[in-house]
C-alpha cells in the first residue's frame, strides 16, 4: 500500500510542502495572539465591549474556512494571505474567550493585595493578571495551533500549496501513498507543536499551576 520509492523520489517536494504548511499554520497563531490580547484586555477593562466582541467572534468562528478562502480569492489571489487571513481571525476568535476568562480568573484577594502594595492597573495587568491567565491562554493557543494545522490542508483545494496538495495529488491519481504521507506528516506536525507549547507553558508558569482549559 505504501510506495517507498515514490516517497524517496519526492522527498524535496514533500519537505517544501511541510515547510509551507508550517508557515501557513504558525503565522496565524502569532498574529492572532497579537490581535486577541489587546482586544481581550479592552473587553475586561470596558465590560460593554465583551458581549459585542464575543458575538462577533463566535459568528465569525462559525464561518467555514473553505467559504472564507473562496471569498478572499478575488482580493488576495493564490497567495499565502488567502489562507493566513481567515486562520488568523479564527485564532483570534478562539483566544479572545480564553484571554478574558484568564484575566478575570485572578482572585479578588490577589487584586486587592496588589492594589494595597501600590500596583497601578497597568502594572497589575502585566505582572499579575497576565501571568495568572497564561495557562488558560496557552491552552487556547494549543487548540488553535492544532486546529490550524489540520485546517490548512483545505487551502490546497483552491490552489494555495500545503501538505493538502498530497491529498489532491493522491485522489487525482488514485494513489494512496501521498495521502498517507500527508496525514502522517500533518499529525506529527500537530503533535510536535502541541508538545512544544506544553513545554513553553512549563517554562512560563514555573509555579506549576495547571489550570485546565476547555
Amino acid at each position: 500500500m505504501l510506495d517507498t520509492a515514490w516517497i524517496w523520489r519526492n522527498l524535496p517536494k514533500i519537505w517544501d510542502l511541510l515547510v509551507q504548511h508550517a508557515v501557513l499554520s504558525y503565522v496565524p497563531v502569532v498574529v492572532g495572539l497579537l490581535i486577541a490580547l489587546p482586544v481581550g484586555i479592552a473587553c475586561v477593562r470596558w465590560r460593554w465591549c465583551y458581549p459585542i466582541a464575543l458575538a462577533a467572534s463566535s459568528a465569525f468562528f462559525a464561518i467555514p474556512s473553505l467559504a472564507l478562502f473562496v471569498l478572499l480569492l478575488p482580493y488576495t489571489g493564490l497567495t499565502a494571505a488567502t489562507a493566513i487571513i481567515p486562520l488568523t481571525l479564527y485564532t483570534a476568535s478562539l483566544l479572545l474567550r480564553n484571554i478574558v476568562d484568564g484575566i478575570r480568573s485572578t482572585d479578588d484577594s490577589v487584586r486587592q493585595a496588589a492594589a494595597a502594595m501600590g500596583y497601578r492597573p497597568m502594572r497589575r495587568l502585566v505582572s499579575i493578571e497576565l501571568p495568572i491567565a497564561t495557562p488558560l491562554i496557552l491552552g487556547g493557543l494549543r487548540v488553535a495551533a492544532v486546529a490550524n494545522i489540520s485546517m490548512v490542508s483545505v487551502a490546497s483545494v483552491i490552489g494555495v500549496a500545503s501538505l493538502g496538495d498530497l491529498f489532491i495529488d493522491g485522489t487525482q491519481r488514485f494513489f494512496a501513498t501521498p495521502i498517507i504521507v500527508g496525514i502522517v506528516l500533518t499529525a506529527v506536525l500537530a503533535l510536535i507543536t502541541d508538545l512544544v507549547l506544553v513545554s513553553v507553558q512549563r517554562v512560563l508558569t514555573p509555579w506549576g499551576q495547571t489550570r485546565r482549559s476547555k
Partner: peptide
C-alpha cells in the same frame, strides 16, 4: 480526542475514497 483532532479531515476523506 487530541489524536483525532490532529487528523486532517481532507486527508482522511481522500484516503477512505481510495480504499
Amino acid at each position: 480526542a487530541n489524536l483525532i483532532r490532529a487528523l486532517p479531515t481532507l486527508g482522511l476523506l481522500t484516503l477512505l475514497v481510495i480504499l
